[in-house]
Amino acid sequence: MSTSARYWREIPQRYRYEASKCKGCGAVWFPPRLICAECGKREFEDVTLSNTGKVQTFTVIRVAPNEFCDESPYAIGVVELDDGVMIQCQIVDCLPEEIKTGMPVKIEFRKVKQEGQAGIINYGYKAVPAA
């Protein structure tokens, strides 16, 4: 069994959407990187991602990994946030058949999975239809 450290160290991204913006070319990296893959610069400023965006593509997982079996079917999509950053996350609070490419969404704080009945709960971000 893995320790909690692996989950814990991603908290700034999973909870607060902290990203890094390259001081050279302005590219925004999520999760943050040590070197910009666009221009090679190594200096960044901290930025927080936008919490609204649009669905770029999606699927409905009907055969799920063991940890997610109880939740299937569930939708997962690629979301382009309003600041242009692409993330992948589940799309919830709607029926799978209601999801459309281009649909505006909002990011909410949700439980993503749990490490068994006795393990820690893993939180993170999911997209919900924008009100």
């Binding site: 999760p31 999606f58 997982i61 799920a64 690629v78 993330i87």
Partner: peptide, 19 residues
């Protein structure tokens, strides 16, 4: 940043297919 959300390989290719 992919598997954490419950995606599978059929799921990833399905997103490519839809696109």
């Amino acid at each position: 940043y992919e598997d954490y959300n419950g995606v599978t390989f059929p799921g990833l290719y399905a997103m490519m297919a839809r696109a």
